[in-house]
Amino acid sequence: MISEALMYIGGILVIIGGICDFFGALGLLRFPHFYVRLHAATVGTIGGAVVPLIGAAILALGCDFLGWIRYPIAGMSFITAILILIVSPTATHALAFAAHRSKAIEWKEKVCDHLEGVKR
């Protein structure tokens, strides 16, 4: 009973991850320039990688026929999810920071830019 419930919860999380991946890819195609595309990429990493990995961990815990292998699989998925949760914002921040410092991207229809005049 509990294992079936775990399987269904994990499966639903994996499906949510797939949907988030689809919308992230769509946003990467539709958004006009780099700074806005970063947000769509975040949808792809958090909703599309961390959530399905946690879902895979729960799903593996629910599979009784796997024997003792289900604990390593669950542990690997969970630790990988935590690592992505720490690493991916760093990468996004580094990209945004480098792009703004080097002024590589033209950005016209913005509302405001408070960082423009700030000297470091």
Partner: peptide, 15 residues
Amino acid sequence: YPVIPPVLPQRTQEG
């Protein structure tokens, strides 16, 4: 179904 990865689940003959 069920299909498992090639890692031995229990180290016994029935396994």
